[in-house]
Design a protein around this nucleic acid. Structure first.
Lengths: 116, 116
DNA sequence: CCATCATATTCCTATATCGGAATACATCAA
DNA sequence: TTGATGTATTCCGATATAGGAATATGATGG
């Protein structure tokens, strides 16, 4: 019954960082805490839009909030990115090695085509 | 008019690897080329399902196919993962710092700036 | 209390997903 | 050709996304 769709953006760090603007936000936050309006302006997006992205990032734990008077300062919590880094890192030796393989593969293709 | 939705899974390596089963497929392919049925069985998914995931991976260039008689052998092309690794790696120093340390780090930054 | 600034949420719509089932397509073997 | 095997695609439905616009919530200073 439960006809599944794409996994929620909030289900994973993987899903959360699939959206380019959220990556931009995270990158900006490396420089320090910032309020929503700041981020929105810096990235050229509307305030509600920034708020929505930050909500996603908060729900996956990549960002945390701190009340500061009228403002809410968003800060980076990069710990959730470590598993992502590790998973992708597991392919490190392959993106160096696969050059030769791919080359031979392409050569084979060309040759096959010519022979036809 | 153009009411945007979530970006296509095929638009990015980021989007393509957001799906856990696709990550599983890529991980399996590190051991070498494999036909669809193999992958499907190993991962406990139906053949059409595996084929669909492989199509996405092919479209973003994380996987390539080679005809081998009746079979089509899928192989890893991990080069598309390198940018992902680099982006995430840009946060490495942040997940190593504990939170108190991060706070002090930010404080230090501010102070340093003021002193300049 | 009121006005103002800062931020979050709701309502809306077009789009795109993932999965199952059925089926089409392709290749080999006898 | 026919059958068998391996693979890709189509049709379908339920879900949930991103964005804009409008609005709600919240905190602060008079």
């Amino acid at each position: 019954m439960a006809a599944m769709a794409r996994a929620a953006t909030t289900s994973d760090a993987f899903n959360a960082i699939a959206e380019p603007q959220r990556r931009d936000i995270l990158a900006l936050l490396r420089a320090g805490e910032r309020p929503v309006t700041d981020l929105a302006q810096e990235l050229g997006m509307s305030q509600p839009r920034a708020s929505k992205h930050l909500r996603v990032l908060r729900e996956v734990g990549l960002v945390r909030v701190r009340e500061a008077g009228k403002q809410r300062l968003y800060g980076l919590d990069a710990r959730g990115l470590q598993p992502v880094h590790e998973w992708v890192g597991g392919f490190e030796r392959f993106w160096n090695e696969s050059f030769d393989r791919l080359d031979t593969y392409v050569q084979d293709l060309k040759q096959t085509r010519q022979e036809e």
